[in-house]
Design a protein around this nucleic acid. Structure first.
Lengths: 237, 237
DNA sequence: ACCTGAACACCGTTCAAGT
DNA sequence: ACCTGAACACCGTTCAAGT
């Protein structure tokens, strides 16, 4: 007898042995498709054609799986920032840092669930530290003291990794223009200033193709404002 | 027979009827004490001396409970900002906004779990919109166009509510000075720039009483940098 | 060494029944 | 109207057993 089994069924793929790497990649795939709240050990096992208990030979538990997905995302970021060609930080630290951050951002745009999972981790992963080490390297090359670089990390916060807290999230409701108009009417009473802001934005973009906010534009506006403030303090120091 | 039961046991408090308000206050109390991950419907019921199923007469389910805790926190913030006496925004929008934000921050410092729960809500609660309406009101009084006010909300992000993404969270490990030194040694190899930054910070604060970061100082530094950048753009507009 | 089935101790929630 | 007990359909995880 050959060691191969199930030869009668050609649809059965030869079994690839389970590994930590395969488990984590499957976890990222599930989060990409259904969101992180849909990630269960049983579902993850099913995705891999295996029983749930087999996972525990490769990861410590569910929390370790989430830690692992952050690892995968950060690795993707590190690979991306390594390839981008930006000005040397000695010549133009702002352009160098800007390029790094916007490159990292692209990865998070492909994995929109990742910020929430990253923030939910109790402790700072070494991969995040490694990424931030590169940020500090750029600042140092640009003439920052360690102290001012430290300030800079705090000012940037999650923006250093390319994402920002959005307090204003799309409602998802208001599918028709009429609903939107009714919603606006209601808001004008309770929230006159927000309503005025919304009206002004709609005026600038009458088709509303962008929705209320162009996230990329807002992100870059905020980033440039911060980089300018940091450069001002660096020059004064 | 009187309707009162259990008169034999004087420790049994007369039963206060359950209400949405009581349920949500108990939920906040549990989150304050044990963290939001420890909040379960069964535990919440026990805290209220009731069966789990009774809760469903006052809240739709667990997600509604979390929505409700955000409501409670935002109400606390609104009460706090109403009482603070700050410069009129017409005279000094920066001072007025700064005072509002630092007041909101105090509430989050009393409920450190709240940012994560607030961010986990899929949609923007009306209470957050009400708070931001006040922020926009200050900006408008300070001479901002609706458009620039919109930019400002995005730049501030969660900082408008008084909290910021901290990517660098205290490890909790390294309880002894020796452990910390060993940790530093290890970091110097993999993360030379972060390690240098850490060393510089320790040098400035040899007792290490503040830990690595003085959060309040960093928050205000970042806030002031942003307010300055916004004022510059307002003046130029 | 790697995988599994059955079981345990939890969850949120439904439902029919009590008062 | 408000509360409850039993039950259902899930979880993550342990353990002893298989190969």
């Amino acid at each position: 007898m050959t060691p191969r089994t199930d030869t009668d069924d050609p649809t059965e793929r030869p079994r690839i042995p389970l590994s930590r790497r395969r488990v984590l990649r499957a976890a990222v795939a599930i989060a990409d498709r259904d969101g992180p709240e849909s990630l269960t050990m049983r579902g993850l096992a099913q995705e891999l054609g295996v029983e749930a208990m087999s996972l525990y030979h490769h990861v410590a538990g569910k929390e370790a799986v989430f830690d692992g997905t952050v690892e995968v995302i950060l690795a993707e970021i590190m690979a991306a920032v390594d390839e981008v060609d930006a000005p040397s930080p000695e010549d133009d630290w702002r352009a160098a840092l800007r390029a790094r951050i916007l490159t990292a951002r692209e990865v998070f745009l492909r994995h929109r669930w990742a910020p929430q999972v990253l923030e939910s981790r109790g402790t700072t992963s070494p991969d995040v530290v490694a990424y931030l080490d590169g940020v500090v390297a750029i600042l140092r090359a640009g003439g920052f003291s360690f102290d001012l670089a430290h300030r800079a990390l705090h000012v940037l916060g999650s923006r250093a990794l390319g994402f920002a807290q959005e307090l204003f999230r799309p409602d998802g409701a208001a599918p028709t223009a009429n609903d939107a108009a009714a919603e606006m009417e209601r808001m004008a009473g309770r929230f006159p200033n927000i309503a005025g802001m919304l009206a002004a934005a709609v005026h600038d973009d009458p088709d509303g193709t962008l929705g209320f906010c162009d996230d990329q534009f807002e992100f870059e506006f905020a980033l440039d404002l911060i980089l300018e403030g940091l450069e001002r303090r660096r020059a004064a120091s």
